[in-house]
Design a binder for these strands. Structure first.
Lengths: 218, 218
DNA sequence: GACGGGAGCGTAATCATCTGA
DNA sequence: ATCAGATGATTACGCTCCCGT
């Protein structure tokens, strides 16, 4: 807001002539003092009647003082629209023609549009840059996750393979117990046989074998 | 850049009201009296007044004809800068003062800047929207990957736990083979004992046991 | 009530001036 | 002098209000 209005000249002394004098409008020839006899300027464009056009205009631009601009700017900050009431009040406060105030507001609005656009652009630009950066971050994050996932799947693959191998060629506790039982059963049976032997007094191993085989297959 | 040059007057009689952009300004909607300190229905239409306003002078603002503008526009399309040569040539061709041509070019450049900014803005806007969309896609992709990763880790956890359990309370092939060997060894030893029995003609199981224990612990 | 038109504001586009580099 | 940028002023047109016929 304030940054836009930097006026080097100010009203403090130089051109305050038009301050409370609307009549000044019809005169005021602000053209630069470069008279005709000024610099020869070498070739190019001899001085033509450039001033002629300007002079016909008669009323040219009178710059508003910084005081006036400040007040106008404050009012503009409040409300960009301008009702007749406010316009007239401002005009009398500033010593300006109401139409000038209206024009000022019109121009201010028009220029405010561009400023706004510029501002919006910078904001959007910042947001976009940020978004792009975030995108790269997300992208790398995705890469990382993908790698982790690949590793995990590899791990799973290995574990599953091992499990399959064990499941096929290995044995569970039951199997071992069965195997262990087998030993015990053997012993028990042997013991039974021995008991029988003791009771029946077998002397020939052949007979024991026969007996054992009978018991087992039964 | 013919599209840019739409002048409401002259040859172009079509409506130009489309150019109004309501987004920038809140268009003065038909509502009246909704403002805060708005006038209490103070109908501002006073008496019809004589139109003596602002007839500051006979200054007519010479507007350039569409012909002139067209030529200027063509030249501007070629080159935004204006060398003195070209300026003078154009001025004489158009029947204008060279300074007018220069001014026209200056204003045209300024206008072009804003148009360019507007264009850039729309482009940037599009790019940003796209980036935001991509971001959401990447984000959801990340979510998916994270979930997959979590599932994979969970799977690994389960597999590892099972493996640990099996490792602790289960047995490998070696164990089973050992157990199986145990049975065979038993058999072999028994057979040996029987052979011994046969050879030595043991009749008492006690003796056999003694013999067996001796063989085993040896 | 409907209709024509002026007053007055708004926007967009222009033209022009001034200032500073 | 030229240019860019800020700014004043004009022109042209759209709207709404409000009044007089």
């Amino acid at each position: 807001m304030a940054a836009v209005n930097l006026r080097p000249d100010d009203d403090n002394s130089t051109l305050i002539s038009h301050f409370y004098n609307p009549e000044i409008y019809t005169q005021m020839l602000p053209q630069q003092g470069t008279a005709e006899g000024n610099k020869p300027t070498k070739r190019r464009r001899r001085r033509s009647r450039v001033k002629e056009v300007a002079s016909t205009a008669g009323l040219k631009k009178r710059k508003l003082s910084s005081e006036q601009v400040k007040l106008l700017e404050m009012n503009f900050g409040n409300e960009h629209k301008l009702e007749t009431e406010r316009k007239n009040r401002l005009a009398s406060e500033l010593g300006l023609d109401p139409s000038q105030v209206a024009i000022w507001f019109q121009n201010r609005r028009a220029r405010w549009k561009n400023q706004k656009l510029e501002h919006q652009y910078s904001i959007l630009k910042k947001a976009h840059d940020s978004a792009v950066l975030q995108k790269t971050h997300l992208q790398s994050q995705i890469e990382k996750l993908k790698q982790q996932l690949a590793e995990a799947k590899n791990e799973i693959q290995k574990l599953v393979e091992v499990r399959e191998i064990n499941r096929r060629s290995s044995v569970t506790m039951d199997d071992v117990q069965a195997a262990a039982c087998w030993g015990e059963i053997l012993m028990e049976e042997y013991e039974d046989v021995f008991c029988s032997m003791q009771e029946n007094n077998y002397n020939q191993p052949v007979e024991w074998y026969l007996n054992y085989n009978y018991m087992y297959t039964n």
